[in-house]
């Protein structure tokens, strides 16, 4: 696999405050990576370093093999970027905004790509004729997504892409990510606090905490590593506690029900339950949230 984004020991100090501390991370071609972390953990600082908007204290980053600092223009030719705080040109219409930003890009918008995005994000000609100052936060955000993706960039860097979008537009965003993944030509690096969205759209997550990389893991491996919570309800009173089985931890039990956490296959537990009067069985899938919150809380 080819790394499209290579971050090597990236450190950024603001005076005495260390915003980013030796971050090292590779993002491979065609994958969608979620970049997660609590507020102030260094996500936006990392993204702004990649775009050469701020300069690193130490370390380096490369996009498509180009050093973000010394070959910033070449690196940014490959990038479509959606900032977290969406700046607007109040006096420009939606059309004017897209035309202006297209005129600054390395490539003209791909034929039909902007139109497809406008349709997908439900931006009507009437919306696009209005001045940006008159548009809602969500509509501005949709315009931001269109400008970031309209040139079909090799690398899309999206900071909080669904912030302010309604559920339908969040769905449209997920479909867009799915399309990009299917086409395989765009690598996506996105930061988000909406973990369900990250879980749905990303191949891997990288988690930063206090400026340091706390974890990098693929979504399927996260799911496999987390225990599932199993609740067993009995048809008649069950006086025994749950048995000791490998990978099974008892959370609580009563005569009517057991709640256990199972890491690994469910087979041994199900085999043991066959001899008991089970009325109902509830298996709760582990979520990314459990994993991420565990890392956020780690000291």
């Amino acid at each position: 696999m080819t790394a499209v984004i290579e971050i090597d020991g990236l450190t950024k100090d603001y005076g005495r405050l260390r915003a980013l501390d030796g971050l090292t991370l590779d993002v491979y071609e065609g994958e969608v990576v979620g970049f997660l972390g609590p507020n102030g953990s260094g996500k936006t600082t990392t993204i702004r370093l990649l775009l050469d908007l701020i300069r690193p204290t130490r370390g380096s980053a490369r996009i498509g093999g180009f050093d973000c600092r010394r070959q910033g223009l070449e690196a940014r030719r490959l990038v479509g970027y959606l900032p977290g705080d969406m700046p607007i040109y109040p006096e420009l219409t939606g059309y004017g905004y897209l035309a202006y930003l297209a005129s600054l890009g390395a490539e003209p918008p791909a034929p039909g790509a902007a139109d497809r995005l406008l349709v997908r994000f439900d931006l009507s000609p009437a919306d696009l004729r209005r001045r940006m100052r008159d548009l809602s936060h969500g509509t501005r955000r949709k315009l931001g997504l269109v400008q970031a993706l309209m040139a079909r960039p090799k690398v899309a860097i999206l900071d909080e892409p669904t912030s302010g979008l309604d559920p339908l537009m969040i769905e449209a965003f997920a479909e867009t990510m799915a399309d990009l993944k299917r086409e395989g030509r765009t690598t996506v690096f996105l930061s988000s606090h909406v973990l369900s969205e990250v879980e749905r759209t990303c191949d891997r997550v990288a988690i930063v905490r206090e400026g340091r990389l706390a974890a990098v893991e693929s979504i399927p491996r996260i799911h496999a590593s987390l225990p599932r919570r199993v609740t067993v309800r009995f048809a008649s009173a069950q006086l025994l506690p749950p048995p000791d089985l490998p990978g099974v931890r008892t959370v609580s039990y009563s005569a009517a029900a057991w709640t256990v956490e199972v890491t690994g296959p469910l087979g041994p537990l199900l085999g043991m339950l066959r001899s008991l009067p089970v009325a109902d069985l509830d298996v709760e899938r582990p979520s990314l949230e459990d994993y991420v919150l565990g890392i956020y809380a780690r000291r």
Binding site: L51, D52, L53, L73, R76, P83, D85, P87, L104, A106
Partner: peptide, 14 residues
């Protein structure tokens, strides 16, 4: 101040 460079200079503009 208004963050406009975040979209202008994120493009290949020196």
């Amino acid at each position: 101040e208004w963050g406009l460079f975040d979209v202008e200079l994120a493009r290949p503009v020196p």
